[in-house]
Amino acid sequence: MDLMKYSKAFALAAFFALVAGCGGATMDDVSEDIVSQSEIERADAALSEGIDGASDAAARAIGDATLPNVRVIYFDFDKSNIRSEFYDVLNLHAAYLMANPRARVVLEGHTDERGTREYNMALGERRGNSVQRYLSLQGVSSSQMEVVSYGEERPAVRAAQSREDHAQNRRVVFVYR
């Protein structure tokens, strides 16, 4: 007897029973305000400076457009700026997405387990947004990308102790759909 199967079935049934009849609230009634764009603009400016050469690489790669093997890039503690060593990786993804307009990617932002969970949720989103912004600047359509932050909830290395383990967890993962 595959007990796991039944327990999964039960969990699913229980879940749907709970969810059934729950309507999502819709709210657009918000006091609209203009977000200060200065940081975003500054970040974008900094990005475009560093990418001039990289854009050519992206353009050259469009022809072959195979799904890139490297699908994770890493970040520094409490930082969301892209390290220059990962431009090549991002350029390959940009090329692939532009050559395959129907390809969709979820940019999963992750943090290490240090610090608070909701702050890390925000930090993970920042990392995802940095990658999205970079890919947009390369010409990838925003409709092909979605950022979902998992914060510290899904570490690559569980119960990380060492500096190296923490570094493995501070990442953006490309999940193609």
Binding site: M27, S31, V35, S36, Q37, E39, M121, E125
Partner: peptide, 29 residues
């Protein structure tokens, strides 16, 4: 929803949302 993490207040009686913070940095918790 407006780009950067901000604090909002959701009013349960009329389902209105009020934005509290306005800063490009992370505002949360």
């Amino acid at each position: 929803r407006d780009g950067s993490p901000e604090i909002y207040i959701y009013h349960l009686d009329n389902r209105r949302l009020t934005r509290v913070t306005h800063h490009y940095a992370i505002d949360t918790e």
